[in-house]
Design a protein around this nucleic acid. Structure first.
Lengths: 202, 202, 202, 202
DNA sequence: TAGTAACCGAGACGGTACGTCCCGTCTTTAC
DNA sequence: GTAAAGACGGGACGTACCGTCTCGGTTACTA
């Protein structure tokens, strides 16, 4: 499931092997700069200086600034995705959405909206974070919905993809377009509204 | 309702008045470049050259590139917002959402996602397009919802803001994050799912 | 006779005029760096930093490092070319050659051999210093020879170009290829040897 | 007389001996690149790739790019220096100078001026080509002059070094500074002019 | 015939400079 | 005062080549 930006098939043994220390130094520097200054203000020169690595080395392994920074983000987020399983679809979804919301509004999470923004101008980047960030999260939600269907809580013929869209998209709409935070009440109400339409008896 | 980027004009009377021809030339050039090359590839030098206007003049009236280009977009979209009123909430919403979707996926509309993207790095810009683009559209939706409540179609105590979020946010989620188009069937199904939760009898 | 690298026809009046201060700052910085570090170690970044001018400005007016540095050299050498006229061809030539030798072996003059060197890889540069440095000097020598012919000292049908070559080329041969200095005795002996072949009665 | 760049070999016996095949491959590749692209455009990476040898190996045996390329030049020029002996100083010198001129203006010989150029910035290199290229040639000229003195053609107390300078330096002056070719007539005239000054009866 | 020292290919790496691009500001003259 | 023309400082970009290094693997003397 995890798609890496660059590893160049580990099986190569010819020549001097890539320095793990260097790779890590780059990612750490990139991530720190991202936290300090935000995506727009991170520069490759800056990463090079901070990490003590030459620009050429950075450009050898990553296509451009976006690629390094994105990679540094995933490298830093040791992202044990939790799979909520409380027995109630509302509970499960609430946990997942509010965890996500908490992260997205946190210092560490503010990069997410910057990545989405940059992704509008850089299709490769967009594809990358979709694969590495959003798809794994949607997979968990799919699981949550499937279990709920199995328990008879939700319609048998439910369009799960749309269910997920309904639950998560307001979060990003508020974040990206309205520029507003949402709170727990909003999430609870949202879930309760949506669930009515998805239930067995509706 | 319409908020302009720059007018400051009103009360000034001394000296040569601002040339309307120049203003228009800038906006037209900016808009054409936006269509041709996308937001990122528009440059102020480019606008100046294409319009035969000096850069100083552009910077005199607009704060930066984003401001001109955004303004050119609104100047070009002679945007008579239509207020659907079919007597059915589903019909009204379907019209509004599918119009919006059609636009957003069109050549002219692709700028919207670029503006949202740039807005993540430029709060002023974000505020600007919110005021000029999104709030007017939400106002119409509010009207649609209020009429439906009045007709008894929807709950009396409905949280209209959240209703609007539920209907519109999947469109942008798919656009900005999933990078996918949505079709009429998606919109219809979406509205039908959501409406169940908002109806009087639910 | 003087051929300038770049002035772009003084008659232009539109737009902000080129800053003489900036031009001078660049040339001064370039010349100082040339003296301090030698041609190879001069960098455009260095000139930019030392002069407080942006690299873009430098590259706007000069094609590359060589062009600026060469220009700075001529700008610094306020080169009142002296035309010796002692009444004796030997005296005249001795003055000219030993002046040249003194300069070429001085700190300021060591750039000349670096320019010639660089000229082997950059035909434009070679042409430039030929026009600005060598041709004017040869013109003076031509004058010296012509006067001597007029006085009857030298053959009427003398190949003046070759005469000049014979007098000056050993200087550069010793400088560029043998890497040796020549002294006054060498010059005197050289002139006396050559003159025998060029005299009327030979 | 022949001074090699690197041999250091002599006394070593332990370990794997240096591969002659590798040495030759490097020199051949370097020389071909020199011919194709000129000195400035030869890169060590290029030599390594073309020869199938690693950069480290190149740097193990030569100090830098200049050293390899210069060495490749001498390796390629199987330079049986001919010693003209026609019985006439004019004839002997004409043969030597015109041979040199022909070479210097040929494709293979254009490297000479590039070496001289590079030598201005790299004293080691300058010393190297002086020892390997110019001194052997001057030795032959010395021989020619000495024989002529022995035959009574030239002055007994002739400054031979200066005689050689006078004959050869115009060739390089024209090549390096004027950027011009010289032809047979030039050489003949040059020799006849110079000889007058050097003869017994002058 | 086994050790071992030196050789060698592959290629990663730090460093330094390059020349380009675009931003937003400033400085002229012309209207 | 408005405007065109265009010079300018700043700052980042991505590229190129240098010379050094670190691996794994090879080769041929010497014990």
């Amino acid at each position: 499931m995890k798609i890496l930006v660059n590893t160049k098939t580990e099986g190569n043994r010819l020549g001097r092997p890539r320095s793990e220390k260097t790779r890590k130094a780059i990612l750490v520097a990139a991530y720190e700069l991202l936290q300090e200054s935000g995506f727009k203000n991170v520069t490759v020169d800056g990463i090079a200086e901070k990490s003590g690595v030459s620009k050429a080395t950075i450009y050898k392994w990553w296509a451009n600034k976006s690629a390094v920074v994105l990679d540094s983000f995933f490298d830093a987020s040791e992202l044990m995705l939790q799979v909520p399983d409380t027995g109630s679809i509302e509970e499960d979804l609430f946990m997942q959405v509010s965890n996500l919301a908490t992260f997205i509004y946190s210092d560490k999470g503010k990069a997410v909206s910057e990545f989405i923004a940059e992704g509008q101008f850089d299709p490769n980047m967009a594809n990358e974070y979709r694969q590495r960030y959003f798809f794994p999260r949607r997979a968990i939600s799919t699981n949550i919905f499937e279990r709920a269907i199995g328990r008879g809580e939700l319609k048998q013929d439910l369009d799960i993809e749309m269910g997920i869209d309904l639950i998560f998209s307001p979060l990003f709409y508020r974040l990206l377009i309205m520029g507003e935070h949402i709170d727990e009440n909003y999430i609870k109400k949202l879930i309760s509204y949506v669930m009515i339409g998805l239930r067995t008896n509706s």
